[in-house]
């Protein structure tokens, strides 16, 4: 069936409003849901030092963990990386706070662009957005991670969303988990979707940032934003997001609440 969409009877002299990119819409949803749970929004550079992208996150040079992400390198000396993850902002943020004399608790989300040097297809892009989360405090547990993510997915995806953890490995968290979310798309059967990696912040990441891991602990998570948008709105090819094609942006109808 063709879809008809009538504009209100305006004439060409009049100016209809433009559109927000769906990533912006997602960023607003993310910021607002996490904002209600007390999260600030933090930023860091997209072209990152090797030190922050890898070393302080427990990924030393010549460690097999570096193979977990295909990395672009610049020709600079010292070389830098278009960041492979938003996680470097964890350490940057904590360092900044410690330098300002502000001890935890911290709660931040870091939505931002990341880069992976891998062949592109319907589900892989060389650049995409990730949303990182970091909570550090005195008694933060894996149970808080589960509660926080469940709340996010209930609000972002659907009331019926559930979260489950599977064991995994990231050098900067211990324990580390993969996060699956149970999602029932309208008119479809529910299924578990792998949506992010997470875990309890590794004590050496805390100490690298100048925080005493004996006193504080926390959780961190990170996952692709395009993937969430794809699941939520039924987009089947990730390559439309950053191609600069307005047909993609207009593939969604926008209404303001």
């Amino acid at each position: 069936m063709p879809v008809f969409y009538m504009r209100s009877p305006v004439y060409y002299e009049a100016m209809p409003p433009g559109r927000l990119h769906p990533i912006s819409v997602a960023l607003r949803d993310i910021a607002s849901i996490f904002g209600r749970m007390g999260f600030s929004v933090a930023y860091g550079p997209e072209l990152e030092e090797e030190h922050y992208n890898f070393n302080v996150l427990n990924i030393p040079a010549d460690h097999p963990a570096r193979d977990m992400q295909d990395t672009f390198w610049t020709k600079e000396s010292p070389r830098r990386v278009p960041r492979t993850q938003t996680s470097p902002v964890q350490v940057r943020y904590m360092e900044e706070k410690i330098a300002e004399g502000i001890q935890p608790p911290y709660r931040i989300v870091v939505p931002g662009k990341v880069f992976r040097n891998e062949a592109t297809d319907a589900t892989h892009e060389a650049q995409f957005y990730q949303n990182e989360g970091l909570v550090v405090g005195k008694d933060i547990t894996l149970a808080h991670l589960k509660g926080t993510l469940e709340q996010f997915f209930k609000e972002y995806l659907s009331e019926g969303a559930q979260v489950r953890f599977r064991p995994s490995f990231f050098p900067f968290t211990e324990p580390s988990v993969e996060v699956d979310v149970w999602f029932e798309a309208p008119g479809k059967e529910g299924r578990w979707l792998e949506v992010m990696g997470a875990g309890m912040v590794h004590p050496s990441v805390l100490s690298n940032a100048g925080i005493d891991p004996k006193e504080y602990q926390g959780f961190a998570f990170g996952g692709g934003i395009e993937r969430l948008v794809m699941v939520k709105y039924g987009v089947d090819d990730i390559r439309g997001f950053h191609g600069g094609d307005i047909r993609f942006v207009y593939g969604f109808d926008e209404t303001t609440a």
């Binding site: 100016m15 209809p16 409003p17 433009g18 559109r19 927000l20 990119h21 990533i23 912006s24 997209e46 278009p82 662009k113 880069f115 650049q127 997001f241 950053h242 191609g243 600069g244 094609d245 307005i246 942006v249 207009y250």
Partner: peptide, 16 residues
Amino acid sequence: KDFLVARGFTEISTPA
């Protein structure tokens, strides 16, 4: 972004 969308601008995202 909101200011521009209200004035008829459409947001795009292009490769880095």
